[in-house]
């Protein structure tokens, strides 16, 4: 039996930028990007589920984010996570990786009882790869980043293949350990139809509160109780629940500040059009030879 905690994140789909999200000035309209489950985090969840399938244990997924990030937690349930937590608070807004790892590490301490923490190597909105190692440091845990494969697991030690610069490495780590994984590590399983049916109605507190708005017949306490009893209540952890030092959260706890942002603009360059003909291409070759670009 091994218990795993998986760190997941909802991210804007920065990799698939289509024409519909481009503004007229050639920049990306970020608010129009669809929100998706960060792929490497899905791979992390898959690895945790594989260990559970093989050895038994419990898989818990956590996300820190705004209430709409509940979507990825539902997807975790659809894949087979046993329990999910939404770590959310307005006071967490504007967090950089240091403040994020602080909140996540405190949430992990509260949830407790794990052999593994899995996370994607990085999220595609920031590509920093920092939250995993920083969370490990705050929990005083060893970490292995860029994990490609879990080779073996015996008692309290795991054998890992990881990517290194220019090759691979086989490492043996004592548990507990934090692993950040790359996409080669696993193919995330599709949602289980049975689990989708079971959990599609799962709701977080904020979502239940939204249901009660404008409906005087619904009382939030009753609603929460009802969802809890049907195992459809997605637990929320706030700064109060975690008794956090607010100086370490959100924008206050973030040493890095965005000073300036420039959108990358696709400006027309001084391109010379070359005719796709024998003559046109031959002239181009002449020009490049003349400029000593060739040879």
């Amino acid at each position: 039996m091994y218990n795993s905690i998986v760190l997941v994140k909802q991210v804007p789909d920065t990799a698939n930028i289509s024409g519909t999200v481009m503004k007229d000035d050639g920049t990306v309209n970020r608010s129009k990007l669809p929100a998706i489950f960060n792929h490497e985090d899905k791979v992390a969840l898959e690895l945790a589920l594989q260990l559970k399938d093989k050895f038994g244990g419990k898989v818990t997924a956590i996300t820190m984010g705004p209430p709409r990030a509940t979507d990825v937690l539902r997807e975790c349930l659809f894949m087979g996570a046993d329990e999910v937590y939404l770590v959310t608070d307005r006071k967490f807004a504007g967090a950089d990786t240091l403040a994020t790892s602080f909140v996540l590490s405190e949430a992990i301490k509260k949830i407790g009882d794990f052999d593994f923490i899995f996370a994607g190597r990085q999220a595609i909105d920031g590509d920093t790869a920092q939250v995993g190692p920083q969370t490990a440091e705050k929990l005083d845990l060893p970490q292995i980043s860029y994990v490609e494969q879990v080779i073996d697991l015996k008692e309290k030690s795991v054998t890992i293949k990881k990517k290194i610069d220019g090759g691979h490495e086989i490492l043996k780590a004592k548990l507990p350990v934090l692993l950040t994984v790359i996409k080669e590590a696993a193919n995330p399983r599709p949602f289980s139809a049975k689990k989708v049916m079971a959990f599609k109605g799962a709701k977080s507190l904020t979502e239940l509160e939204a249901m009660t708005e404008g409906n005087s017949l619904l009382y939030i306490d009753k609603l929460v109780h009802e969802f809890q009893s049907r195992n459809l209540f997605i637990k929320t952890l706030t700064s109060d629940d975690l008794k956090l030092d607010l100086e370490k959260c959100g924008i206050k706890g973030s040493p890095t500040k965005v000073y300036k942002i420039e959108s990358v603009i696709l400006a027309g360059g001084n391109q010379t059009k070359i005719e796709n003909s024998k003559k046109g291409i031959s002239q181009l070759v002449d020009k490049l030879m003349e400029d000593r670009i060739f040879g």
Binding site: P12, A15, T27, V28, I124, I261, V264
Partner: peptide, 30 residues
């Protein structure tokens, strides 16, 4: 930054958001 002057700060310039923006990051207080 926020009405405070910092001398000789390191401007850390990086692509962000899948390379769609270029961000300049500073760490004025550490």
């Amino acid at each position: 930054y926020l009405n405070r002057k910092h001398d000789n700060l390191l401007l850390q310039i990086r692509p962000a958001f899948g390379g769609n923006i270029i961000a300049t990051i500073i760490t004025p207080e550490t």
